[in-house]
Design a protein around this nucleic acid. Sequence first.
DNA 1: ATTTTGTAGATTGTCAACAATCTGCAATAA
DNA 2: TTATTGCAGATTGTTGACAATCTACAAAAT
Lengths: 254, 254
Amino acid sequence: MFMNYNLAFDSRETDMSEQHATPVDTVLALVQRNSLTRLVGEALEKLILSGELSPGSKLNEAALAERLGVSRGPLREAFRTLAETGLIRQEKNRGAYVREIELAEAADIYDVRAGLDATAGRLLAGRITTAQLALLREFAAGMQRAAATNDVDAFHTLNLAFHDRIVEMTGNVALIDVYRRLVKQLALFRRRNLLAPRAIPHFADEHSAIVDRLAAGDGPGAAEALYQHAQGGRQRMLRDGELAAMPAAGEKHA
Amino acid sequence: MFMNYNLAFDSRETDMSEQHATPVDTVLALVQRNSLTRLVGEALEKLILSGELSPGSKLNEAALAERLGVSRGPLREAFRTLAETGLIRQEKNRGAYVREIELAEAADIYDVRAGLDATAGRLLAGRITTAQLALLREFAAGMQRAAATNDVDAFHTLNLAFHDRIVEMTGNVALIDVYRRLVKQLALFRRRNLLAPRAIPHFADEHSAIVDRLAAGDGPGAAEALYQHAQGGRQRMLRDGELAAMPAAGEKHA
DNA sequence: ATTTTGTAGATTGTCAACAATCTGCAATAA
DNA sequence: TTATTGCAGATTGTTGACAATCTACAAAAT
């Protein structure tokens, strides 16, 4: 009784690490451990974060259900999860839409994220291990290389991983959850992809400084460095956003 | 076509301010604006936060659906929302349970909350209005009175409102959402109800100091005061939990 | 006595049908 | 022409039924 679920749209699979397991094993384990609702939710999240479903898109229940090979029930439950995560917006009797995040909203999220980064740094400085430090230094070195070669994409990926790891290393599940939720929401704000290449070396240096503070066990220092670092990103985003929007007069941002 | 929903379990209603509207008006407006899923979710949240459904309780779908006068569909959707909020825990084919938060977990949440409080203070100090300041001073004064009369319940209520208002006054929706989510989760940890009466005056003084920093437009100072204030609450909780082995986080806040 | 196996009941997962609501367009009236 | 009204189709909200899974207890085997 294997229903023919269609939760991956394209041929490239999500994780090749378990490629050698038989198809039955993977499908069986997948469906047995994760509920259909969870699988649908992850599939939708992937579609949204990859941009395949762009902000503002209407999410038609019947169409999506058929596309995913699932009935509307699990899909609607997945919608509730995504709505709570902040990736979609639901209106009664109107349907669900991929959330649109405007500049001011993204700036607000950035403020919260900056605070979380600072909290992570303060927590981690007191308990970081040498192995963890080595890993972070590796990330920092990789970003220095990316900066030297002007590899914007590599830098961007490493940058996300670097900050995620810092948060993850705290072991504080509540912090990790909240942080990742906000990062996902920020990913909806696609305008910031214009990572200015000449700003990259500066950020790379800041990363190294952050690792130094963590290595020194300087909680407040790491917190401050991470906070200012995030605020720098926020400012850059605001500058780029205002340039793109080009308002006639100065925008009102409290 | 009015179904007989039974979303309020006991006679005391949630909000008496619109008592004079006809029943038809209220019910109509209620059901027309809010989906059944949302109403069910709010009803469940109330039951959980009030303790009527205590942590660890099994949430039987059929039983709860009948109790609320609703079918299982909306109830399950509400479950998804509550699970994402962190108030319930869902296991595949096993059901939903009111989330149990242990001491270490609550301490972690407190660390995040402390960081959010600090962020709120830093943001608010730069933009707080005199009217908002007056309101906060009113809260602070009320808590001083509660401290003087050893009115623990009143102090507790005002304390929650005070901190919620500070966060709310920032106008940062992302911050408000995250903060309230964490506060709700902490409410599941009921052991901290043992608010030691002799500690109350100290907290009341700290509140006044916080308002002073906000009034002075001292962002870092307000952040630091709020952070230390929250850490104090965390430490007290840990002491009461008799597991003071948890290390305190850094002292200073960037 | 202890462990294993098998069944019955209860519970959750999924689905498809029906009801309620919204949207867009055409017909009508001013 | 312009605004209003009234369908018809599409979409979401809700429900009850059926399938899959789990739990508990009893019977059987070691």
